[in-house]
Write a protein that binds this DNA or RNA. Structure first.
Lengths: 340, 340
DNA sequence: CATAAAAAAGGAACCGGTTCCATTTCATTA
DNA sequence: TAATGAAATGGAACCGGTTCCTTTTTTATG
């Protein structure tokens, strides 16, 4: 409808296009009387500048791109909320790339470094391999990873090994000896080295430190999601010597664990302890013991770091790493095991 | 980095820019040998077309815009998932506009009709007033409302009055006579006529039909969110004659209700029935009785309708309305009241 | 082999902004 | 009042694609 261009405005106001552009961008060297004329013409024609044209001319989009396995992870939503907070401050818009399949992931890593649609890129929970990292570095826009890591890229991370250790240690301290670990698939096609496998390392470390044996049958992995976790825990609880405690690599999976337990009439925490990871919003309501990681904050920090990089994009300094703290939140799903 | 343009490619391949463009767009009239030359040059220079420039030239963005009060409503996430499904099929990208404040809402309704950043606009859970609807209609891109309604705009809706009626009727049928309703603020700054006030109408209708009095003290409203709902329900349960059943306008608020009840040692559903609305993902896990609305489907249908409009944008036919069905899901938070 | 018709290719103009440079207008000072 | 410098303005060129019109090349036909 509104095909009013800057030239139409210029004509209507009886000035040149340059002057109209200067008015639009609050350039100081426009006489007050001229500015008024132009503003009246803009008003009269209901002119609004064409953002795409502006972007092409400026070589700048005022968008930032966010890639995330968005809908399969409630934690992504929380992170994105943090991102949004910063974006709103800077008047940047959000272009969202959701990832649910490996094809989509690869296609994005192929096309995103181009970066013509945004001035900065935030990658959440997807770890690039070395080639991909290289491409991103060569690309024209700054990149920040959140909940993913690569030595050559800016990143906001947590210590997943420590987190796995903390969770397992908590169960050990309560007196558990038969501790299972459930997680999504460690060799995930999504991630180069995923968080779950680092947490797994922490789990193994804690067991080893306590002199507890690692039992392969206590370690299950499947796609991320409540129903899959439920199924895994059913299998665990059907073992001849079932675990007395379960460490789930995410709260989502811990929910599946609680579900399975409840379906078998097993009372948590009396007969089974469950600890999760993330501390997503409903964790509190479910009274789920978990390792809290600052999800919202990770988004805020990631976006802030990205803007910082965008400002000083010239100086190719070292890749920054921001590490956020973890915290054990003891609620009501863990307790000492039943004494025999 | 990659400032390779189509002219560079043309030079390298020893052809004109037009030919390169034709190769890029699979135009038939390019000789096979020429195509090969060009493709080799593209490969050699690692050329990727500049999307913004393409958009300006084409007057088409391959983006669709989605506005939603996104992070305050888990239901929006589910809807967006549906939208994404369709988008991925069509190779469209998603530009997301989150709304958390009235200022932001108004600013968006002011600027979005311009529609230069996307080829179609989806508005979720935000109801435009008549002026805003008019602007949207005059704008250059098709618009579809999801979970919001305006007679002149395309929309995917549910019958909120019926939903409110169904929830209340369920409680009445169980034998409840003291039924409270909690909701977010009816005269919300976000919405012209919000869903909550329509559900409220259904609530009143059901009460009236059953000959039950409407008691103002059984009707509370506050900002949307778990803690606010929790507070409202604490107040309700502290009344001299507290309600025996609560209808919450959303599952999120129902969760707050459950929390408050549990904190007061009131057993659900024996001493208090709670019914929600939406059937968000955790509702099943919480065994929450609720009115199911097709959230995911609403996104799918909304996006599909939008693409349909975008295809046949010329013919200004009537505004379509797609109404999705509601379903009572009886789980474990409602039961007959205790007989006195 | 000449010629007409069809196919392929070249490149200017365009999309709608911004910016830089040249030019005009204004203000200041002698 | 003229000279000088500063401020304000006009508009061509540019950003990097696409497209249309024109020219060149190829193919088909007599």
């Amino acid at each position: 409808m509104s095909e009013v261009t800057i030239r139409d405005v210029a004509k209507a106001a009886g000035v040149g296009v340059g002057t109209v552009s200067r008015v639009l961008n609050n350039h100081p060297s426009v006489r007050e009387s001229t500015r008024k004329k132009v503003e009246e013409a803009i008003e009269a024609l209901d002119y609004k500048p064409h953002r795409i044209a502006r972007q092409l001319s400026l070589g700048k989009t005022s968008n930032i791109g966010v890639v995330a396995p968005f809908f399969i992870r409630p934690s992504s939503v929380e992170r994105l909320r943090g991102v949004e907070t910063i974006l709103a401050e800077h008047k940047y818009d959000l272009v969202l790339y959701n990832v649910e399949t490996k094809e989509r992931r690869d296609q994005l890593f192929e096309s995103l470094p181009r970066g013509d649609m945004f001035d900065g890129l935030l990658i959440i929970t997807l770890t690039p391999n070395d080639d991909e990292a290289e491409r991103l570095l060569r690309g024209s826009v700054p990149v920040v990873l959140v909940d993913a890591s690569h030595p050559r890229l800016n990143r906001v991370v947590i210590d997943d090994v420590l987190g796995g250790y903390m969770a397992t240690k908590h169960l050990i301290d309560l007196g558990h000896e038969r501790i299972a670990y459930i997680s999504d698939i460690l060799e995930s096609p999504f991630e180069h080295v995923g968080a779950s496998s680092l947490r797994y390392r922490g789990y193994r470390d804690a067991l080893a430190e306590a002199g507890l044996p690692f039992l392969p049958e206590y370690y299950h992995q499947d796609q991320h999601g409540v129903p899959q976790a439920r199924k895994m825990v059913h299998e665990l609880l059907a073992l001849p010597a079932p675990p007395t405690a379960i460490f789930a690599a995410s709260d989502t999976q811990a929910i599946g664990a609680l579900q399975a337990a409840s379906e078998r009439g097993i009372v948590v925490p009396d007969q089974l302890s469950v600890i999760g990871f993330d501390d997503i919003e409903i964790a509190e309501f479910l009274k789920l013991t978990t390792i809290h990681q600052p999800l919202f904050t990770s988004g805020v920090e990631g976006a802030a770091l990205l803007f910082q990089c965008m400002q000083s994009s010239k100086l190719k300094r070292e890749a920054n790493e921001i590490q956020l703290p973890l915290r054990l939140i003891e609620r009501a799903t863990t307790a000492p095991p039943i004494s025999i």
